[in-house]
Computed example of a mutant assay.
Amino acid sequence: MNASYAARLTFATATSLLLASSVLAQEQFAIGASSSGSGPYINGAAISEVVNNAQDGYKFSVQTTGGYRDNLGLVLSDQVDFAFNTLIDLEFAYNKRGDFAEVSNNEAFKDLRQLFIFGIVPENFFVRADSDIHSLEDIKGHAININTPSSFTYGLNLELLKAAGLSSDDFKAGTVSTGQVFDEIQNGVFDGGLHVFQLGLANAQQLSATVPMRYVGFDQKVIDKLNEAYHGLLVPFEIPAETYKGQSEPVQTFGLAQVIFTDADADEEMIYEFTKAFWENLEALKESNSSFRGLTVEIGSRQNTVPMHPGAVRYFEEIGAL
């Protein structure tokens, strides 16, 4: 081995060791989302990529989970570092409302801390255009999917029906997941569905491109009555015209605030860097994913009854949002 080759080999080895130690020095953190391929999982992948590219101190990765309800326990048991949920579920858990009042050891929910709201996802009422359904009251006698009984959306839909003076006995209630409903409608199993999903979801666009569909709005009185059951945590939402093929008019509905949360013991510096990287790169997120459209720091920094983690507070105070 000549001296020149030996020197190059020594340099290459030293460089590899430095790179390896740099990777090992990066602390690894998991973001609990939902099932693989779901909207939350896609959002988590986009957020992880943008935040990882924006800073060098921490490495973030999205993790599949059983869904938003499971995410509460995963965070509190330190199986993930932070996770996604609806603001409604986070608030209800923290305040031990609804189903959470009956959960054993629900005092642990007081350790929940929010980082920020990262998006608003609408309730979508979509039906085949060849049906005679033009309002929620018209679903009587039809086959309409309302999601799986274990999902947040299923409970939301039952409350929505109640607010409209209806029940699941008034129609043929389907109980398949959002991922399945589009194929089922295309195959004629259902006349439509009531589902929460992000604006412009690819599966929804594909369905409306192959089967003429109608998106139906809700009466404001029904939304207001529904919001009473959710302590005013629902937000107004308009699905812009032409979001889906054949949808020529805007549709008035309501949305669910989506929140990133952690627990009280999460490292303040890590949370600060994550929050900063997210908000300083919001435009890149908007370009990559329609879920972030319309998001502003004013929406994101909105405080609720769940305390905001000190790391997030620090960032929002720095930029004058709090």
Rank of each mutant, 00 (worst) to 15 (best):
F60L: 10
I120V: 04
T175F: 06
I185H: 00
G255F: 13
V313E: 15
Q79R: 15
L9Y: 12
E268C: 04
V50R: 06
L207A: 09
E107W: 01
F190L: 07
G98A: 14
L156K: 04
E123W: 06
V80G: 03
L72W: 00
G193M: 05
L158I: 00
S77Y: 06
Q63Y: 12
F274C: 05
P310V: 10
S135W: 02
Q258L: 10
D78W: 07
A277T: 09
R8H: 15
S248E: 14
Q186P: 02
H134D: 15
V62D: 04
S290N: 02
F254L: 08
K110W: 07
A46C: 12
S22K: 00
A129K: 15
E273K: 05
E242H: 15
V189A: 02
N2V: 01
S248N: 14
V50T: 15
G311L: 09
G200N: 00
E159A: 15
E268P: 00
Q252I: 11
M213N: 07
E317R: 14
L194Q: 03
D267W: 06
I185K: 01
A46M: 10
E249K: 13
E228A: 14
F116A: 03
N157E: 01
A173Y: 07
T296P: 04
V75Y: 05
G188C: 15
E317W: 10
I120A: 02
L17Y: 08
S291R: 06
D191P: 07
Q252H: 13
S291D: 13
V176G: 00
N304H: 14
Y272K: 08
S104H: 11
A101R: 15
G44A: 10
F92L: 01
R69H: 00
S61D: 06
L115H: 09
Q247L: 04
T10S: 11
L161Y: 14
I117K: 01
A163K: 03
R8I: 13
G66S: 14
F254I: 07
S167P: 08
E273P: 01
T262Y: 01
G66R: 11
F274M: 12
Y5R: 15
P240I: 12
A3F: 12
I319N: 03
S167Y: 09
G311K: 03
E242T: 10
S167C: 02
E184D: 13
A25K: 11
L233Y: 01
D138E: 12
R214F: 09
N203M: 08
L234R: 03
